[in-house]
Simulated scan of single mutants.
Amino acid sequence: MKVIDTPIADLKIIEPKMFGDERGFFFETFRDSWFREHVSDVEFVQENHSRSKRGILRGLHYQSNQTQGKLVRVTSGEVFDVAVDLRRDSPTYGLWFGTYLSEENRRQLWIPPGFAHGFYVTSESADCLYKCTDYYAPEFEKTIIWNDAKLSIDWPLTRNKEPKAYSAQPILSEKDSAGSVFNSREHWL
């Protein structure tokens, strides 16, 4: 596997080494010892699987306590995956990074604890799997509104090469529609 640095410290893209021929393919998606040595010395305690239709935007979610690191990958379809740095003492506090994760590129995104996370589905549907370093705790869950002006995330809501593939307005859950605006005193970990 190959680790690719992003502009935000500790936020990493992981690219697997593929083995394939006319019969199909094989690649390793996770190895604890390799991950601890090359990415982060953490323990994963929960794994989640979500399926979403085209145009769905989930996030930006984080937990104020029991902060979660997430290792995200897409097994079917494609998403534009976004992480926002909420680490209080980070020089990149309040900055975001986004990348496409898909069944074709097989990349994973390591989002350490201290980030808000969200994704937008760009394919007909997408299956996302993500390992977490702490348990889901709904009493600590927070949501930042997806289109916050301060964060100014460049979500790919339209695309010239496939104009019908993306909607101008994402489909949001009630919880995500009611997300709060980004405030540096409120949203830090």
Rank of each mutant, 00 (worst) to 15 (best):
D41P: 06
T6A: 11
A149I: 13
L95I: 13
H187L: 02
G77W: 01
D85M: 00
Y166K: 15
T143H: 09
R58Y: 05
D154P: 07
G179P: 00
K12W: 07
Y100L: 15
G94P: 01
S167M: 12
S76I: 10
W110G: 00
F97Q: 02
F119T: 04
I145S: 07
T29A: 09
K131D: 15
T143F: 09
K2W: 12
F30Q: 04
L57Y: 06
V84R: 03
F119N: 00
Y120A: 05
L172S: 00
N160K: 12
F30L: 01
T29K: 03
G114E: 03
E139T: 10
L101K: 06
R159A: 13
Q108Y: 07
P156R: 07
M18L: 12
P113T: 11
R36F: 03
F97H: 06
K70Q: 10
S40N: 14
Q66E: 15
F119W: 15
F25H: 05
Y100F: 10
Y166F: 13
W110L: 07
I153T: 04
H61C: 06
K142A: 11
K53I: 12
M18T: 13
L11E: 02
K70M: 10
E22W: 10
R23L: 09
L109T: 01
E22I: 13
S52P: 04
P91R: 05
D176F: 02
V79Y: 05
R185G: 10
I111N: 04
F115T: 02
F44Q: 08
R107H: 13
D154E: 09
D134N: 15
Y120D: 03
P113A: 10
F119H: 06
Y135S: 09
A137R: 11
T122C: 13
D41W: 10
V72F: 09
L101S: 03
D134Q: 14
R87Y: 02
W146S: 00
E37D: 15
T158G: 08
K142M: 12
N160L: 14
K161W: 12
D89T: 11
V45L: 06
G20S: 12
